[in-house]
Design a protein around this nucleic acid. Structure first.
Lengths: 195, 195, 195, 195
DNA sequence: ATATAAGCGAGACGGTACGTCACGTCTTTGT
DNA sequence: ACAAAGACGTGACGTACCGTCTCGCTTATAT
């Protein structure tokens, strides 16, 4: 049942785009009643969130022995994830997530924080190896890795087939900056953590 | 009239968020009839686009005499623009833009292309100065500058007050990469240009 | 539900006249949503038609034993029906019906044709009794009976309390004309039947 | 100017029916601005009223020497008038007239009362000739003459080409009834005159 | 002869109602 | 007992038309 709902969501998005995603259409396509959907998800956004963001695997990449290797693997992993759904879906989904405080929190915890943890792990490895003197702000690294890739696809609407190349480039740049100690331990106050 | 509509749009968004943006509410707040709004904009999205993206000034920064200086100025300019509206507004607006082919094209031409032109100008200056041997792909530079800033605010939901610091960091990294000749002349095929 | 809609329609017409009949007002008064109304009726006119012309009973009057008696009963029945709603409602309703080909056809079949059938029945009885030699055109009889009554109320805007007297008069005149064989079997070509 | 407006009204009605009659369309078709129309007529209904009911000549028919002849001439005159515009126009126009108290009064005075005056004239002639003993209620006669004709066209939607035949029939029936003294001097109270 | 006012075309405007759509809730029906 | 079917209230959308209005332009008259 949940499977058919998930399949239906993807089907409808594929057919009519995120904007054409309708609960009725999902119910129809899944051969399921709307009530059944709402028994599982409290809103259309919850449903979409659950379906589309469920299987993003967020595991730390294997230790490649070098910071550059680790970052490259990580950037490629991010690139692969972000290339999955269409840019339209990604932007709409993010908009929906931001509009709902509940989803926002879950998104934060489920993906942002997890990815940040992975970044921290990678940085810690580099520290242990002696490649880094101090651990820079993982949020900064996250913005530097994820930012260009996400923007490439969603804002600039560029070719998704080149995200891997972009990932390599971004990883190299980040490595260089990290090695040079260009990234401070923190750039931000903790003020907006309370949001 | 157009002014009062614009003011009303901003007012309503400030009061109820982008999700609470209603044409009727805008009409009411602007002291204008709905018909008048639709006489100007063919849809709510057109209206929002016109109002929120109208006055983003996109002028090339003054020549600072060095690539690093130029890129820093440019990144700060981007940061200032992107920090203007709330992250929610930004993400929703982008989603709406991507959902409408017409808006999409206008967004592409009005902002992406213009900003890319500015980047090209800055790179050409560096070439003229001899700071660069070849002109790298401006789209890459755009992704590297805009990406972290946009993501910082919209995806990671971080503190907007630190975008300037992040801009400086990003400009420095980009300068380093450019000086090292790390950015290829092109990373992408021209295939998706026809979209 | 249908009942409350019907009641609401009549209520709103009573309060604000046919011209003040608004779907929103009906919905409000019925404690029902506009969507519910449009789920039942495809337009405001369909709704009004259904509500106001639903319960007009069109049964042949009991055989009184004479053509004059039958026609009198019939004319009074028509008078009673036509006196029901206000003249304003009647004229506006008819205008709306004529403006919509669909309603027009249904009106024709549901009321005009049914009433004509009743007239035919009455005429056939008279034929069987030997009161008539040949059966005259029922449409003529219909025009002669219905015409003065409808016009009295709707065009001339005269007192509805006298329709019964007028009905008797009209029935007597029709009887006289029929007995004298003054009404031809047909006055019209069949040309406009195809409309 | 007034002429072109009148022509435009008829044109638009011919092209799109009474329901498609729009002030903008009239203005466009007449090559005139909407303001000019509203300078002449205070509403769309006034305009239509003025244009469509302006030239209905209501003069007493020549004395034919007999009541039957006079009534036949009168009935034919009515039939001609009523056959002019389409049944749709007639019914919608009447509905609009009834909805507006001002138009209603003018309609009453301009057409109903005038026609009634003509009927009175005809009846007076018959009285003078000795064909009638007493003068019956002219309103009754009006209902008997106008009713079947109007209903034939507007309610029953029958062939307009046969209105002349129907007029003759109606005139004959009315003559018979009048000669027999079947029509009372009054059927109605004066109560609703104050409406 | 020119100024001045009146009428005009063009068309924007406020308002009101229409009919549509989707969300999320609910009742009914059948298995 | 649970799920499919589907009706319902809510609320926003975009459209159409009415009657009002302002803006220039023309034209006819009066000084």
């Amino acid at each position: 049942m949940d499977v058919s709902i998930a399949a239906a969501v993807r089907e409808v998005i594929a057919a009519h785009g995120y904007g054409g995603l309708t609960v009725d259409a999902v119910a129809l396509s899944a051969g399921v009643s709307k009530a059944t959907i709402y028994r599982r998800y409290s809103s259309k956004q919850e449903m979409t969130f659950a379906v589309l963001l469920h299987d993003l695997e967020e595991v730390p990449p294997a230790d490649t022995g070098s910071l550059h290797g680790d970052l490259t693997a990580l950037a490629r992993q991010i690139a692969a994830q972000v290339s999955g759904p269409g840019g339209d879906t990604l932007s709409s989904l993010l908009a929906d997530i931001r509009a709902d405080p509940n989803l926002r929190a879950r998104f934060e915890q489920t993906f942002i924080a997890v990815e940040r943890g992975i970044i921290t792990t990678v940085l810690d490895r580099a520290l242990a190896r002696g490649e880094l003197a101090a651990r820079p702000d993982p949020v900064l690294v996250q913005a530097l890795l994820l930012g260009p890739l996400y923007t490439w696809l969603v804002v600039l609407d560029e070719d998704p087939t080149h995200t891997t190349d972009l990932a390599d480039l971004v990883a190299t740049m980040a490595t260089t900056a990290l090695a040079a100690g260009a990234l401070p331990a923190t750039i931000r106050s903790r003020s907006n953590r309370s949001r």
